[in-house]
Simulated scan of single mutants.
Amino acid sequence: MRLDTDFMRNDDSRQDRKSRCQWSASICSMNPLRSLIGFKLAPKNASSSEIPLTMYTCLLETPSIQVYQALRVGSGLSGKTDEAAARGLPNSLFAVQILHGAQPVGMGRVIGDGGCFFQVVDIAVLREHQGKGLGKRIMGEILRFIETQVPESGYVSLIADGPAQDLYAQFGFVHTAPRSVGMAYKRPRPADS
């Protein structure tokens, strides 16, 4: 199988986007919050008339609580309560969603203090849409935000689960161990009564 991808965005230069995401780009006039991604999956020797076209759109907007929860669980990440999502989502510094038609199928966010510290979180693509380059598209949008909005001294980090570290490495993220390691607070469980 060969994967040919074209996506269009009205505010990106052809060479700049190609080098960031390793996808070919062309320019079209569209809503600046959306960009069109056309994915053509075809056998190596298929003619262009034989290639089905599935369209995805990229929306630079924080997902709703329900969409956020569904994308996390549907992609294999842990669930978050209504209360946690309601508190956390409005504090996103940047968010991107991938839509298939009108249906959200992927997302990613950047959180932090807006000056010194930034963390990439919630990189999620529904299982049935994985393997189509959507994670790269999400990370490409996040990298664009980092490169244009994060001060030079800002520290950008993420926690990589399993093989996702290979995706993040393509966007300039490196292991920090052994010099520093990620740690998480684990709440003590209440004693059984």
Rank of each mutant, 00 (worst) to 15 (best):
M1F: 05
L3G: 07
T5M: 13
D6Q: 09
D6A: 05
F7K: 00
M8T: 10
R9L: 15
R14T: 00
D16C: 00
S19T: 14
S19Y: 14
R20K: 15
C28V: 10
S29A: 09
S35E: 07
L36W: 09
L41I: 11
P43N: 13
N45L: 13
N45I: 10
A46S: 12
E50C: 01
I51N: 00
P52L: 08
M55K: 08
M55F: 12
Y56R: 05
L60K: 13
E61D: 11
P63N: 03
S64F: 01
Q66G: 06
L71I: 05
V73M: 06
G74K: 01
S75R: 03
S75C: 03
L77E: 02
S78D: 10
S78Y: 07
V96F: 04
V96M: 04
A102M: 00
A102V: 03
A102D: 03
Q103F: 00
D113S: 11
D113R: 07
C116L: 13
V121C: 10
V125K: 01
L126C: 05
L126W: 05
E128C: 02
Q130E: 03
G131L: 05
K136I: 09
M139I: 10
I142P: 03
I142L: 14
E147G: 13
T148I: 01
Q149M: 10
P151F: 02
E152H: 15
E152I: 15
S157A: 14
S157H: 11
L158F: 11
I159V: 15
G162K: 09
P163T: 05
A164L: 10
D166T: 06
D166A: 07
Y168G: 12
Y168L: 11
F173A: 06
P178K: 07
K186F: 01
R187N: 00
R189W: 04
D192P: 05
S193T: 13
